[in-house]
Amino acid sequence: MALFLTVISVLLLCQFLFIIWNMKQFPVLKPASFSSDEPISLSILIPARNEEKRIEACLQSIVNQRLYPKEVIVLDDYSTDQTRAIVERFSQTYPWIRVQSGRPLKPGWLGKSYACSQLAEVAASDWLLFLDADVRLKRGAIEAVYEQLCAQKTGMLSGFPEQKTGTFFEHLVVPMMMFTIGCHLPVKWVRKSKNPAFAAAHGGFIAIEKSCYHNIGGHEAIKDSLVDDMALARRVKEQGLPFTLASIHPFVYMRMYESGQEVWKGYRKNLFPGVNRSIALLSSVFCLYTLLYLAPVICLMMALLQLNVLSICLAILCYGLGVSIKAAIDIENGRTSAMAFLLPISILSLIAIGLASMKIGLKKEGYEWKGRRYE
């Protein structure tokens, strides 16, 4: 047991050093001095389906900016609540905000991709910024984003907003998105390599230059992809166009889910499709997580029963290194490190959701989200 734990501790130390380096590779959006009396050439595009609880705060965060976009277009995707009425109320005060009615979903398309495609058709700016309705922009966000876009000139920019969480299950699972990115994706290669394998994006915040968007085929080229953000990023990299995965959390935040049930359904929809439905890849990741983060806890309990002091110390060291990895990633992304101590429970939760996602994918039962079923 002592030898096993020694090997695990060395692996965890290497992982810790990697994430410390890796998290520093994110380009960081910085406060910008950009100012203009005229609206900038940026269209903010928001697909919305029954978002009455979220859309008002999203729009309010936009109108609170010092610098306004040229237009904000909200696509009402057959909402049955007050989504449209809320947007229309904003448009009375801010004429550059408007709502557009969505068309019936075409065969072969997924809902969000079709909504985004319709928005892009009518956008009039050089840059398109796709936002989810649960995204909030902090003051100064548009200046910071637009300055980065002007410097980049073309291509795509995405990033992971600061994740606000409320329920216990949200605290456990939602931050694991950045945990997997930090541990496995060399951020420097995302920016420098043309290999589409080194791509990551967040669908809640995607900025893309209009001609680049049309050159890669837009959302029509990825119309049947459940993980549309990753698919779009890969298309950009395949064309050799600039792609930036930036640290945007100082300016952008969101609460993706508002209950444990939503977390389960949302991650279940994305996990297996997110690894291209590869049983081998998902199983390998879960085996690695079990080895690094769960096995030391099991060994600690066994060592306590055996009163094996050396193994106890090594198991505690392994657990501490795992917690340190999680805490470093959380802190770097604007979160508290308190939940890092529950990393083994977070890992178990992620594995359970992943297995459920794999089961649905393999049995072709269909993933359910916002009243629609996706294969």
Rank of each mutant, 00 (worst) to 15 (best):
3 L>P: 08
5 L>I: 01
14 C>S: 10
15 Q>Y: 13
20 I>G: 06
23 M>R: 06
23 M>W: 08
31 P>C: 08
32 A>W: 15
33 S>H: 15
36 S>R: 06
36 S>A: 09
39 P>I: 09
43 S>C: 03
44 I>A: 01
44 I>Y: 02
46 I>M: 07
48 A>T: 02
49 R>S: 04
59 L>K: 01
63 V>F: 09
64 N>R: 12
67 L>P: 06
75 L>V: 08
88 E>S: 08
88 E>H: 06
91 S>R: 05
93 T>C: 11
99 V>Q: 03
99 V>S: 11
112 K>I: 13
113 S>T: 12
114 Y>N: 00
114 Y>V: 01
115 A>L: 05
119 L>I: 03
119 L>S: 00
126 D>W: 03
128 L>R: 05
129 L>T: 01
133 A>V: 03
134 D>L: 06
137 L>M: 03
139 R>N: 11
149 L>G: 00
152 Q>N: 11
157 L>D: 00
159 G>L: 04
160 F>I: 10
161 P>A: 08
164 K>Q: 15
166 G>Q: 14
167 T>M: 11
169 F>C: 05
171 H>V: 13
173 V>S: 06
178 M>A: 09
186 P>V: 07
187 V>A: 04
188 K>D: 15
190 V>E: 02
195 N>V: 14
199 A>I: 04
201 A>L: 04
201 A>T: 04
202 H>E: 11
203 G>E: 02
205 F>R: 00
208 I>T: 00
214 H>S: 07
216 I>H: 09
220 E>F: 10
220 E>D: 12
221 A>M: 05
221 A>S: 11
222 I>G: 02
228 D>A: 03
229 D>K: 04
230 M>Q: 13
230 M>F: 15
231 A>T: 05
235 R>D: 04
235 R>G: 03
236 V>Q: 01
236 V>Y: 04
236 V>K: 02
237 K>C: 00
239 Q>K: 10
240 G>A: 07
241 L>E: 01
242 P>W: 07
247 S>P: 05
248 I>M: 03
249 H>V: 08
253 Y>A: 10
254 M>N: 08
255 R>H: 14
257 Y>G: 00
268 R>G: 01
269 K>T: 06
270 N>K: 15
280 A>L: 14
283 S>V: 12
283 S>W: 13
284 S>M: 14
284 S>E: 13
288 L>T: 12
294 L>T: 05
295 A>R: 08
295 A>P: 09
304 L>K: 10
307 L>I: 09
310 L>N: 05
311 S>H: 06
313 C>Q: 06
315 A>I: 05
321 L>H: 02
322 G>Y: 10
322 G>P: 04
325 I>M: 08
326 K>E: 15
326 K>G: 12
328 A>N: 08
329 I>P: 11
330 D>R: 09
331 I>K: 13
334 G>T: 04
339 M>K: 03
344 P>S: 10
358 M>S: 07
361 G>M: 07
363 K>V: 13
371 G>K: 05
